[in-house]
Amino acid sequence: MYKAILSRILQTLIVVFTLVSVCFLIVHALPGNPFTGERAMDDVVIQRMEASFGLDKPVLVQLGLYWKNLLLHGDMGASMNFKGVPVSSILGQSFPVSFQLGIVAMLMGCGIGMPLGIVAALYRNKWPDYLSMVVAMMGICLPSFVVGPLLQLYVAKPMPMLNIAGWMQAQDVLLPALTLGFGVAAYVARLMRGGMLEVLNQDYIRTARAKGVKTLDILLKHALRPAITPTVTFLGPAFAAVMTGSFVVETIFGVPGMGQHFVDAVTAKDLFLIVGLVLFYGILMGLANLAVDIILMFLNPRLRA
């Protein structure tokens, strides 16, 4: 088991290393950099700026320097667009915001999605099933840029304690988290229903029912643990994705999170910020998938070989 985990970590590191290097090269292959943008700068100034970020050296030397600084000094370089602010401090400022938002969104998503899925499976092909599956489908078909403005207009505006947008008070997390969590809830409900249906057909559930075990006890003690497997597999990567913020939700609700940088950095061709984000996201994805593997081993003893 430890060997499997160790080899998984090693694989993740190799993948992240390759991805970051490839991104570094792709960004270099694009024409222009933040200094050759709209504002016309003096050629000498541009050259000096480029030199200060090492852009005058050959590409592969730059890549080597990036890895050397990162691995030896933990230095992720500086943002070119934000006038030399270190990438690590940009991530350090925005990640906690996205993290808070992400946690609340995931809690809401699971809190809405799991009961919906379980109820749907219990009442298969009856109206509670159809109702919850239509709600789940709405979560997939109504994009966040429709749900967000609707929540602002019909929930935040009539309620004085909710701000329409902003990130000042504790309750500001609610509406953006609901917008994000709605989509998650939809997938959770569908996966939970599928997992539950598969388990409820098993012989041991029929045995438990024949013995006269109460439905709630069957659900909680016998069915839930195996039925949750597909949901857990989905939640891992989803958690990593939600925690790193969503550009759309952050823009609509004015949340100073990480999502905005994913778009802004690429549009500005802010080399070090882009590769920093790819590095961070890749590691987070790897950790999430590792966590999924460990949780699945805990849920299903047969996987603990």
């Binding site: 991805l19 991104c23 990567p237 790193t244 994913f262 778009v263 950095a265 690429v266 890749g282």
Partner: peptide, 13 residues
């Protein structure tokens, strides 16, 4: 590996 890339970054690039 490619699935571990952030979607928006890769699509915009």
């Amino acid at each position: 590996g490619l699935l571990a890339l952030p979607f928006l970054v890769i699509v915009i690039l």
